[in-house]
Design a protein around this nucleic acid. Structure first.
Lengths: 132, 132
DNA sequence: GTTATCCTTTACGTCAACGTAAGGTTTACG
DNA sequence: CGTAAACCTTACGTTGACGTAAAGGATAAC
């Protein structure tokens, strides 16, 4: 039975972040570890949120943007008004992400084309490339 | 015959950036506007590079990462060694971008699922959503 | 000629996202 | 008992990517 609760050190190992980062995220109300005396204990929920946080960061979202989106993934019994707002926000975010994906695909295609061009250029110069 | 050369103001209008940003990018050697007296004049090359810069930023790359990638898109007559390094760098970058795209697709799917869940939840509460 | 617009440089300010250092507490081991 | 490991808080520092303010030159319009 894995304990469900993890210390800050264990979290750092698991997610490859520093303690400072976790404390910082707590201060910014992105995660809510419980306390045993002074010490923080991170729940499954915290881990799920952290995973989403790190994911969001890789997509270039700010912590504040991420914080708002997180409400989407664990709604308690909030006001319906609040829910609706979150819903709309998530829709906008989805659209942004889809646009980003499309643009990313284009950029990937461009880059690939450029790489092919490069390869011929290099081979003209007699450079042998390592087979990938 | 559109002039090929643009002033900083025209650039700002075209790309929706501030003069400060363009001067900053020049200082960081991302673009190389020529000078007419004091004034900067931006070439087609600068515009191509700027476009890539802004694109890269949206994908979460740092200016320094972008700067290195830019060499890929306008190679002069550099050393072959340098070319090969650029090539390898670009391949790594391509891989990162593809991973990012895949991860993005997953995140999009997750988010969509969450949104569907949300819709049923909201409709249970008798909320009418605007048709998109 | 002066007023306005557009450009310039220099330099200090700012904001996000942490890093890092200093000093204090709790638990575990020899 | 001491000390080492892992945690804590407080607080100042840093880096990237610009913003913003001050002071001034060049040109066009009135």
């Amino acid at each position: 039975m894995t304990d469900d609760l993890m210390t800050i050190g264990q979290m750092c190992d698991k997610f490859d972040v520093t303690p400072r980062t976790l404390r910082f995220y707590e201060a910014k109300e992105l995660i809510f570890p419980i306390r045993e005396g002074q010490k923080r204990l991170f729940t499954k929920r915290d881990r799920a949120r952290l995973k989403l946080i790190l994911q969001g960061k890789r997509f270039g979202f700010s912590l504040e943007e991420i914080r708002q989106l997180l409400n989407l993934y664990d709604l308690g019994d909030q006001q319906t008004t609040q829910l609706t707002k979150t819903y709309e926000l998530a829709q906008e975010r989805l659209q942004v992400m889809e646009e980003q994906r499309d643009e990313l695909n284009e950029a990937i295609d461009d880059l690939k084309e450029q790489l092919t061009w490069f390869e011929t250029e290099l081979s003209h110069r007699g450079v042998k490339l390592a087979a990938e």
